[in-house]
Design a protein around this nucleic acid. Structure first.
Lengths: 117, 117
DNA sequence: CGTCCATATATGGCATGGCAACATATTACG
DNA sequence: CGTAATATGTTGCCATGCCATATATGGACG
């Protein structure tokens, strides 16, 4: 039976938000993919979850665009990790996306507000 | 040259928000597709725009799911219009989606907040 | 020492949903 | 009569996220 799930949109809302999330999380310091995915879950209290199958390809895309720069780090007693840091261009994009997200949310709120009389 | 657009996500953010927008707009009274698309543009100040190629198929989906009920209305001096009204089930879904949207936005904001020291 | 779990990265194929482009009608206005 | 605004509709493409699966390492436990 399809459409049993009352909230299919919860899944769809995520689309496009991943970029902003990742850029934000590597703003303060470089992080690796797995760390980013854990942070998203923790900080959202489980409300938002990005699968690794979405995350890694997205990291490659962001690096390809020059917004992130990745670097392999190998430490004894650890599996190799690829740390991504925000490039100057990425920093500009992040600022722009933060503004855009605010504008978007305000617009959605304005439209979906309960009509008063 | 690809990726010239600094904000590809602005387009992606919309994905999934359309359901909430439409359900909200037919909450107070029945509306037809064209009216809904105009309202979205007006109330968002042009920040959000849904193309008809997204809108009409979505209206059919929502009707198919029993969240909306459509009805043709013909008036002299007007092209025929299909007015959609919110069903009782649709009303429940709308309430649920409003809550879900709030939760989602709060989660995103929490994750993307600038880190304080 | 073997097994299981958490860590960590990677990929092929699928589903969803918005968009561009195109298409059809009707009414109003000059 | 041409053009714009209104109003609905469809086909095919593309971007993005998900599922399932795969590989590899280290630590804990028995």
């Amino acid at each position: 039976m399809p459409y049993m799930d009352v909230k299919p949109s919860d899944l769809e809302w995520k689309k496009g938000s991943a970029e902003l999330l990742i850029l934000s999380l590597v703003e303060a310091r470089p992080r690796h993919g797995y760390e980013i995915s854990k942070l998203i879950e923790q900080r959202s209290g489980g409300a938002v979850h990005f699968h690794v199958a979405s995350l890694y390809p997205l990291l490659y895309r962001l690096e390809k665009r020059g917004w992130l720069q990745g670097r392999w780090v190998e430490k004894s007693g650890q599996r190799r990790r690829r740390y991504y840091r925000l490039t100057p261009q990425g920093r500009k994009i992040l600022a722009s996306q933060r503004r855009g997200w605010q504008t978007f949310v305000e617009a959605i709120n304005r439209i979906t507000e309960v009509e008063h009389a």
